[in-house]
């Protein structure tokens, strides 16, 4: 049968920063073609296509929580593949090679992670699963 694409609405203006991205204005409606785990979604709008940050999009037909995994409070060990300094207060500063526990894999590519007693957001794109057991 035909492929039904999900429709989303932009919640704010987003100006693209590379050729493969798509700029959107608040209230624009896009169709999502592919959702990458790192939080970039490939969208089409009219005759244009490109990647849009998922956090700028909300579903037209109510929340899409069904797609989101439940939090895993035990945590899943991951290793940071790059240094990252948090830009917002709720983000963690982590150095390359440090181990963290991933508690919640959010669809927007910003995962809730724990290091010691501190919890905050960290970009999924800079994490890879550790082979170690918890």
């Amino acid at each position: 049968g035909p492929i039904i694409l999900q429709s989303y609405r932009a919640i704010a203006d987003y100006e693209k920063s590379s050729k493969t991205e798509l700029s959107v204005k608040a209230e624009d409606e896009v169709e999502v073609v592919e959702k990458d785990e790192n939080g970039w979604w490939f969208c089409q709008m009219k005759n244009k296509r490109g990647w849009v940050p998922a956090a700028y999009l909300e579903p037209l037909d109510g929340p899409d929580e069904s797609e989101e995994q439940d939090p895993d409070y035990a945590g899943e060990l991951h290793i940071a593949t790059k240094d990252y300094s948090g830009e917002l207060q709720d983000e963690l500063d982590i150095k390359k090679g440090e181990t963290v526990e991933v508690i919640h894999k959010l669809l927007d590519g910003w995962w809730v992670v724990r290091r010691g007693s501190v919890t905050g957001y960290f970009p999924a794109t800079y994490l890879k699963k550790s082979g170690e057991a918890v």
Binding site: A12, D36, W40, P123
Partner: peptide
């Protein structure tokens, strides 16, 4: 064909417009 997504983390919208996380 769909090109690979950008390698940098996707930007987060300003807190005042950010949708509520579950």
């Amino acid at each position: 064909t769909i090109k690979r997504p950008p390698e940098n983390p996707p930007p987060r919208p300003p807190p005042e417009v950010r949708r509520k996380q579950a």
